[in-house]
Structures are given as structure tokens and as C-alpha cells.
Amino acid sequence: MASATDQALRAKARALAARILVDLAKSGVATHRGIGRIDTRRAVAADGDVDLDRSLDAVVGARAAGQAISLDDLHVRSWVRPDTALCLLVDRSGSMTGERLATSALAAAAVTYRHGHDCSVVAFGSNAIVVKSQDQSRHADGVADDLLQLRGHGVTDLGLAVRTAASQLGRSRAGRRVTLLLSDARSTSGDDPTADAAALAALGELVILCPAGDRADAEALAEAAGARLVPVDGPGDVPRAIAEALG
């Protein structure tokens, strides 16, 4: 009976912690979604200013026929921002407890809450666990709770992690694809991850979110693979770090 009670209390504590993390994620700085550009689309599918060059023939033809012009025949110009697909890679090797565990769960909650329609969360060590796949619908608190149940152990196969990210992002049609690697980037298993990381960076963007006090390996990988580096100073710094990574 005591064991069952302890398990129930732990489950309630995890659920409460997950909800708190989601609330923190919601209060974070809203992320940018890439650089805007002017695009021309059919008026039936977008708002904006009429593109006279693209619409002139349709306007003249409708006027000559004494008919109202169809929105299908009009084109408008407007600012658009590219959709963004995210993959968060969470390092679960070593001692994944305390502050590091909270940082990972908060990052997962923030990514899922803000980009849940097109994001994936992968926890990795010697293997890769897809906590949320790119095309799966999951609540942020459930994703955070799953990460809170993980315990760090074993070695770090960074090559496997970035290949898994490439596979997940390959399911998306978004114009912008970003991988957030939450890790000290210290690879202790598998092949040298540099080539895989460079290929992932070429697919879109690779941003390494490394501990502020442990960045040497992350800096080396970022330079070799053409990735960006954003240090994270604990759980409270996660919203700022993600906003900078996506800005």
C-alpha cells in the first residue's frame, strides 16, 4: 500500500511540475519565425495589395465581357513569413538530474507549446527516443512529463541524434527547418558526428544550446559543422535562449 501511495504521489508531483514548466514556457518571449518577404498569391487565398501587373489581363478581360472579376483571377502582394519546423534534441546521457533535467523539460515544453503543429522532441544517449514525432499531436505538459521521468545514463551518440533529427524534419514541408541540440556536445560513442552535423546544418539550421559553463566541445562542433552556438544558463534562461536561436 505504501509503495502504491508513493508512486501516486510521484506521478502527481511530475504532473504538477510539468504544468508549471508549461506555464513558464507560455510566459517566455515569443519567438520569431524567420525573415519576412514580399510574395504574390491569388486573392482567394490571401490578403494584400492588388498586384496590377499580374492581374491586369484578368481585369481587362472581365471589363470587356461585362462581368465581375473573380478572386481566382486576381493576385495580391503581401508580406509572408516562412513556416518553421523544429526538432529539439535532448541529451540524456550522464547525470540528467536537478537543473539539467528541469532545463530539458522546460525546453521541450516551450518548443511543443509554441510550435506543436510542426515539431519533434528526441531524447538521446546511446539510443534515440522520439518523445514527440514531427507529425504527432501532443500536449506540452505530456511531453514535459515524459522527459521528467527520464534518467540520464550511458554514453552519448551525437551522430545518431542528428541523423534522427534529419529524419524527423524530413517529414515537414516547412520552408525553415531548425534543429535545437540541447547538449554539451561531448560525443562518447559512435562515429565522429561532424559530418552528420554538417549535413543537418545544410538541411536547415543547427543551433547548439550548451550549458553556459561547459561549452568547449559545443564550440568545436559548431565551428566544424557550420552550426550556431547559444549558451543556456539554467532553466530560467531557456525562453531567452530559444528566442535567440530562432531569431
Rank of each mutant, 00 (worst) to 15 (best):
V131D: 03
D157P: 12
S137L: 13
E219V: 02
A62S: 08
V143K: 12
R100H: 04
V29W: 03
L148C: 11
R41Y: 07
A30E: 10
I20D: 10
A218F: 03
A199Y: 02
T156K: 10
T40W: 08
D73L: 05
P235T: 01
R173P: 05
A174E: 01
T194D: 10
L221T: 00
A11I: 07
D157N: 15
G170T: 04
L229P: 10
D196Y: 14
G34T: 04
V90R: 05
V44R: 14
P231N: 05
D196G: 10
A174F: 06
W79R: 12
R151H: 14
L181D: 01
R92L: 05
A11W: 08
I69N: 00
V59K: 04
A45E: 06
T156I: 08
R114D: 10
P235D: 01
R186N: 14
D83G: 15
D237K: 05
I129F: 14
C87L: 05
S95H: 02
D118Q: 02
V130I: 11
A212L: 07
A105T: 09
D23G: 11
V178I: 15
H153T: 11
L147F: 12
D237W: 07
L16P: 01
V232P: 04
V90M: 10
R114L: 14
T188L: 12
I208S: 04
S172K: 02
T164F: 08
I69D: 00
G204A: 02
R63A: 01
P231T: 04
P211F: 09
K26P: 03
A17R: 11
A201Y: 04
G152R: 10
L221N: 01
